[in-house]
Amino acid sequence: IEKFKLLAEKVEEIVAKNARAEIDYSDAPDEFRDPLMDTLMTDPVRLPSGTVMDRSIILRHLLNSPTDPFNRQMLTESMLEPVPELKEQIQAWMREKQSSDH
C-alpha cells in the first residue's frame, strides 16, 4: 500500500509539472495564426496569391488538392516561399510568452 501511495504522489507531481509546462498560445496575434486552421504558425510560407500559411497545413492540403485553398489556382510545394522574418517574430513572441508564464 505504501508503494501505491508513493506512486500516486509521483503521478500527481508529474501531472502538476506538465500542467505548468503547457503554455497557452490562444492569444496569438492574428498575423501569427494560420488563416485556414486558426492555429499558431511555426513555419510560415507565402503562397503566390500573397496569403501566408503554416507550411504543415498547406502541405497537408496539397496532398488532397494541388491548389491554393483560397483561389483554387494551381499550387505546388516548390511555389511556397518561406517567410523567415515572420517566423522569427513568432518565435520571439513564443519565447516572451514562455518567460512570462514561468
Rank of each mutant, 00 (worst) to 15 (best):
10 K>Q: 11
8 A>G: 13
61 H>G: 00
92 A>C: 03
2 E>V: 08
7 L>Y: 11
56 S>Y: 05
20 R>P: 13
97 K>S: 08
42 T>K: 05
64 N>K: 02
58 I>T: 04
39 T>Y: 03
65 S>A: 04
14 I>V: 10
66 P>R: 08
26 S>C: 14
61 H>K: 03
92 A>T: 10
42 T>A: 12
24 D>Q: 11
31 E>G: 10
20 R>Q: 14
92 A>E: 05
93 W>R: 02
10 K>P: 11
7 L>S: 10
54 D>G: 03
59 L>P: 01
3 K>R: 07
38 D>I: 12
51 T>I: 15
10 K>S: 15
101 D>I: 06
22 E>D: 09
85 E>V: 13
92 A>Y: 10
69 P>A: 00
40 L>G: 04
71 N>T: 15
102 H>P: 11
14 I>A: 05
92 A>I: 03
25 Y>H: 09
43 D>T: 02
12 E>G: 08
27 D>E: 12
102 H>Y: 12
47 L>H: 03
19 A>S: 07
89 Q>P: 03
39 T>R: 01
27 D>A: 06
53 M>I: 15
41 M>R: 00
16 A>Q: 04
93 W>Y: 04
14 I>N: 12
50 G>E: 07
73 Q>H: 03
44 P>A: 01
17 K>V: 15
12 E>Y: 13
13 E>L: 06
23 I>K: 14
48 P>A: 03
101 D>E: 09
71 N>R: 00
26 S>I: 15
49 S>P: 02
95 R>K: 02
20 R>S: 14
41 M>V: 03
41 M>S: 00
67 T>C: 07
101 D>Q: 12
6 L>R: 15
90 I>S: 02
37 M>K: 02
17 K>S: 04
93 W>K: 02
45 V>G: 01
20 R>W: 14
90 I>T: 04
53 M>T: 15
86 L>V: 05
20 R>A: 13
32 F>I: 02
61 H>Y: 01
43 D>G: 01
102 H>D: 14
59 L>Q: 09
26 S>P: 06
49 S>F: 15
71 N>I: 02
30 D>K: 15
96 E>K: 13
74 M>G: 05
19 A>R: 13
31 E>A: 10
39 T>M: 04
64 N>I: 09
21 A>K: 05
39 T>N: 07
57 I>T: 15
101 D>Y: 06
7 L>V: 07
55 R>P: 00
96 E>V: 11
72 R>P: 00
63 L>P: 04
95 R>W: 04
20 R>G: 11
49 S>G: 05
4 F>I: 11
94 M>F: 15
74 M>L: 14
55 R>H: 05
81 E>S: 14
78 S>N: 10
9 E>R: 12
68 D>A: 00
73 Q>G: 03
64 N>S: 06
58 I>N: 02
95 R>Q: 10
15 V>Q: 15
94 M>K: 11
18 N>H: 09
33 R>T: 05
16 A>G: 11
80 L>P: 00
77 E>K: 07
85 E>K: 13
39 T>S: 06
50 G>V: 00
14 I>P: 07
53 M>L: 15
80 L>V: 07
46 R>N: 02
26 S>D: 15
9 E>A: 15
32 F>C: 01
94 M>S: 04
67 T>I: 03
35 P>L: 06
94 M>I: 14
3 K>Q: 05
10 K>M: 10
91 Q>N: 07
13 E>R: 05
92 A>D: 14
19 A>V: 11
98 Q>R: 15
27 D>V: 05
97 K>D: 11
68 D>N: 15
80 L>M: 04
80 L>F: 10
83 V>G: 01
74 M>V: 10
50 G>R: 09
31 E>D: 12
27 D>G: 13
98 Q>L: 10
48 P>T: 03
42 T>P: 04
61 H>E: 04
65 S>Y: 06
7 L>F: 14
26 S>N: 15
56 S>F: 03
96 E>N: 06
52 V>G: 00
92 A>S: 15
73 Q>P: 00
82 P>R: 06
8 A>T: 10
64 N>H: 06
99 S>L: 09
42 T>N: 15
46 R>G: 04
25 Y>S: 14
13 E>D: 13
72 R>Y: 02
10 K>H: 07
72 R>F: 04
97 K>L: 04
78 S>K: 11
100 S>P: 12
34 D>E: 02
58 I>M: 03
71 N>D: 02
78 S>A: 13
5 K>P: 08
39 T>A: 04
74 M>T: 13
86 L>I: 08
41 M>I: 08
89 Q>K: 12
18 N>T: 09
14 I>S: 10
96 E>T: 15
11 V>E: 12
3 K>E: 06
82 P>E: 09
24 D>Y: 12
95 R>S: 12
35 P>A: 02
57 I>L: 04
18 N>G: 05
32 F>R: 12
12 E>V: 07
23 I>T: 13
83 V>Q: 06
38 D>A: 06
53 M>G: 05
35 P>F: 00
79 M>I: 05
26 S>A: 12
71 N>S: 06
46 R>K: 15
79 M>W: 12
73 Q>E: 04
50 G>N: 03
97 K>T: 13
6 L>V: 11
98 Q>V: 14
22 E>Q: 08
98 Q>E: 14
11 V>M: 11
10 K>G: 11
23 I>R: 10
34 D>A: 00
16 A>R: 05
